[in-house]
Amino acid sequence: MTVSALTRPGERDRLVVKLSEIDWFFCLVLCLIAGAGALMLFSIAGSSWEPWAAKHLIRFGLCFALMVVLALVDLRVWFALAYPIYGLGLVLLVAVEAVGDVSMGAQRWLNLGFVRLQPSEIMKIGIVLALARFYHGLSGKNAHLSWWLLIPAILIAVPVALVMHQPDLGTAMLIALTGVAVVIMAGLSWRVILAGVVAAAMAIPPLVMFVLHDYQRKRVLTFLNPESDPSGSGYHILQSKIALGSGGLLGKGYGLGSQSQLNFLPEKQTDFIFATLAEEFGFVGCVTVLALYAAVIFMALRTSYVGHSHFGRLGAAGVTATFTLYVLINGAMVMGMAPVVGVPMPLLSYGGTVLLTVMIGFGLVQAVRVHRYSEVTSGKGALL
């Protein structure tokens, strides 16, 4: 290809137009949250860029560039890849069962030599895309209440069962709740929703007692009474509550959090980084960061409403639901309002896999915005 072909005015103009359609204020808020995460990681490492802060910024920069590239991908491409991505996720989850790496008692990763891949993260995107494509070709009547509901139920249940077997309760919960959220937003009958809530509430006790692994059951029971084992299974929640309460209104000051600096707070760089934020910046710092999260959720939901295709609207809304669940579950976990299930605070916590998943999802959200006038057509059947 010649230089002139690469720089044709028409192509440059289209690229500039697409880039201008990206919600750059949305991108700025993402950068602010990731920047806050880097500041906290710098602090808890003893005012050092290593081992977490520098890598966090580099990973975010790469993932941000990927999000921008994905925002330029036409929705018809996302639509065509929906089922293949879901299928790839299932194949990799099965591969984990057969040849996955075992670490800390869990078999969740595939060692590809150059990288350790966690297929359950792929499924967080795959379940949104697959359900969005399925409902794109389904009538409103069938989405409301019909035997067609068996298909999304199977689409959700299979990966959830595989992830639960690894075992990974937090990720299985996220996949299940995200899938249910997409089904509800697609137009599920309120009678079915209420019946599902009642059934789920009734299923929780036997699930906890007979399905969960011993350590998972202990986490759930400890959440109800963490003081029963303060130096064991209740340690995480108690130390997190101490960090949250000691921060007060304005916090102890940057780099002065005793719980994190003296290593009383476990997983301070990942699952409990929000407790570190509360200790050093207090209630005001927590509210500020939560306001940034709320802004991201609001702008992403607003984007889901502007899409002309049902696939785009459900895809963007499903990604937003996943992100919202991350924030709600981690926040509840840190405050002792939910069991410790290993769900990080997105963009704030250290970790490349979750960051990559979140930014790919936001690439889809921005693609819906950039290509909001694109017509996504499907075949005659619901599964086409």
Rank of each mutant, 00 (worst) to 15 (best):
G87N: 13
G234Y: 01
F362N: 01
M359A: 05
V183C: 11
G137F: 04
Q118P: 13
A275F: 06
K380R: 12
D229W: 01
Q239H: 14
M185E: 07
Y373C: 13
G379D: 01
P205L: 00
V180E: 05
F283Q: 07
I184H: 11
P84M: 07
F114D: 09
A157C: 12
R369K: 14
L328T: 15
K141Y: 12
I237S: 01
L347I: 04
G315V: 10
P205G: 01
I237N: 01
M333H: 08
P119Y: 00
A54Y: 15
A53G: 10
R313H: 06
Y305T: 05
H165T: 10
L262Y: 14
M299T: 00
V182T: 06
N225D: 12
I151Q: 00
F134N: 05
G315C: 10
F323K: 13
A201E: 01
V376S: 06
M337I: 09
A95H: 12
I329S: 06
L117Q: 06
A45D: 12
H213W: 01
D74Y: 00
A291F: 03
Q366T: 11
F79I: 02
A106N: 07
F26L: 12
E97N: 14
P152F: 07
L277F: 12
G251I: 10
S103G: 12
G247P: 02
G100H: 08
F362D: 03
L383F: 13
S146A: 07
G307M: 08
V99M: 06
V341D: 05
L62Q: 13
R219H: 03
L145Y: 14
M359R: 02
A382R: 11
M333N: 09
N111D: 15
R219Y: 05
K252V: 10
A367D: 09
T7Q: 07
G248D: 08
K218M: 13
I360R: 06
W147V: 14
S146H: 09
V284L: 13
W52F: 15
V296S: 04
V182S: 03
F223D: 02
G61V: 03
Q366F: 09
H310R: 15
A80W: 01
F311W: 09
L41F: 05
L249Q: 13
A54T: 12
V102E: 15
W24M: 13
S233V: 13
T171M: 08
A143D: 04
V180S: 11
Q259I: 07
I329M: 11
F264C: 03
G282S: 08
Y86C: 06
N142I: 00
K124W: 05
A278H: 03
N142V: 00
A71Q: 02
S47L: 14
G46A: 08
S120Q: 00
S20M: 15
P266Q: 10
